[in-house]
């Protein structure tokens, strides 16, 4: 069988003896697979933090690729704020069943009921920050030593500084000024008992990389990522869902029905929609390519202050 030399990044198919298409993500995909294997080899109790969003769904596909034909050798964990889009939860349960994975769910509501955190109130009330306590408790409960997440450096400026293996002390805190240098491919996962490492396999991906990958791999994602009719209201230039009572709405905020989709899927209380007619993955990718607003521009939790994310990260947020 002849081997066609074309690009260094291509792998040749035995059956078809042709170069695999779309090389767009190959370097990034190879890097992510490498990171997943380092996690499985270096840690005793890793867990993949699964939010039901596109980034964590992409992580699951990459983990499948890293360990095929074996199953993904660690469980998924969802920190449920209780304010998730119902579509996301349904999607999560279906995915876990199809891939025969173990799913752990821990609820922010439980942390509230136990008096560990206090629910925010008012116009911008969100359970987003409250997740941190529930997450840290779960890490302690299961003694997880590595938590894999879908954070990307292009999302936000504090995340741009994040390492691939990011050490948290036993209070879950991030010491951003004293991070381990990461040279070449080598990942140092040595930690002390009680510490844990946050692992970010798609650190170097951009939002467009993720969407292109979802398209190329034909990965299924929750329906709310595609344009759909929804009852919404406007506030501060953001579009909020009015279909449930999670988002606080004042009486003078008028509800209307529009075609929208979500570009990022976080807690409902802090995730705004965008007006869109993109009802297929092709159209969504096209829209992202042309977009002039950054992805986290629709996350109200980042607008609290210039350093909102950095502060949350120091406290143990993802």
């Amino acid at each position: 069988m002849s081997i066609i030399e074309t690009d260094l990044d291509t792998v040749l198919d035995v059956e078809q003896s042709k170069v695999l298409g779309a090389l767009r993500n190959n370097d990034l995909e190879n890097e992510a697979i490498y990171i997943f294997r380092e996690v499985a080899a270096q840690f005793e109790r890793p867990v993949l933090l699964f939010s039901g969003g596109k980034d964590s769904i992409t992580l699951v596909r990459l983990a499948q690729k890293a360990f095929y034909p074996a199953k993904i050798p660690f469980p998924l964990m969802h920190i449920d704020t209780g304010h998730n889009f119902p579509e996301t939860i349904a999607f999560r349960d279906k995915l876990v069943q199809e891939l025969d994975l173990e799913l752990i769910v821990r609820n922010v509501q439980d942390s509230i009921d136990q008096g560990k955190v206090v629910e925010e109130s008012g116009k911008y009330a969100s359970r987003n920050i409250l997740q941190t306590t529930t997450l840290l408790d779960a890490i302690e409960e299961f003694k997880f030593d590595a938590c894999i997440g879908g954070a990307r450096r292009d999302e936000e400026k504090a995340r741009a500084k994040e390492r691939i293996f990011s050490v948290r002390d036993d209070f879950g805190q991030w010491d951003e000024k004293n991070q381990r240098p990461e040279v070449f491919d080598m990942l140092n996962g040595q930690i002390e008992l009680g510490q844990n490492v946050r692992v970010f396999p798609i650190s170097n991906w951009t939002e467009l990389d993720v969407w292109s990958y979802i398209q190329k791999e034909a990965i299924e994602i929750p329906s709310i990522y595609f344009a759909h009719k929804r009852k919404i209201f406007l506030r501060d230039g953001f579009i909020w869902s009015a279909e449930d009572d999670v988002v606080f709405r004042a009486e003078d905020e008028v509800v209307e029905e529009r075609m929208v989709r979500f570009r990022t899927v976080g807690d409902m209380s802090c995730t705004a929609a965008v007006l869109s007619d993109a009802d297929t993955i092709e159209k969504v990718v096209g829209e992202i390519r042309a977009s002039k607003i950054s992805e986290r521009g629709a996350r109200i939790d980042d607008k609290r202050s210039e350093a909102a994310m950095e502060k949350r990260k120091q406290q143990g947020y993802f």
């Binding site: 081997i3 260094l8 291509t10 792998v11 035995v14 190959n26 190879n30 690729k65 890293a66």
Partner: peptide, 29 residues
């Protein structure tokens, strides 16, 4: 040479693959 669920003839540099060998050899990390 596997990349996910497909077999390939050649793995180029920087590709993350899974390799099997003809003989039962003891190999570890």
């Amino acid at each position: 040479i596997y990349f996910y669920d497909k077999k390939y003839q050649t793995a180029t540099r920087r590709s993350s693959v899974t390799i099997t060998l003809e003989d039962e050899v003891n190999v570890s990390r």
